[in-house]
Amino acid sequence: MSFLLTCPNCGTREVTDFGFGGEISARPTARPSLRELGEYNYFRRNVAGVQREWWFHRSGCRAWFIAERDTVTNEVLLTELPRGPGSPESVA
């Protein structure tokens, strides 16, 4: 067991209840060059600090949600359901 996350549907659980989807990154909207595609597929900001990231409640409701977590302390500042296309975290 380590830190806790609060699934917006199910409540607070141990991190082992969840799957990690990585930092939120924007999927290119127009056809990217090979280099831009590589950047999107492989490069990560990997910030030391607050990161918006995807989590999946694998052991519970099996829904994806978004967390803001400080990667230096693992403190989870907020969790929320994605708001869909057009929202800041949308990768579409």
Binding site: F20, G22, N46, Q51, E53, V72
Partner: peptide, 9 residues
């Protein structure tokens, strides 16, 4: 661990 972190705990 599957999640990213800089915290060595």
């Amino acid at each position: 661990e599957p999640w990213t972190t800089y915290r060595m705990q």
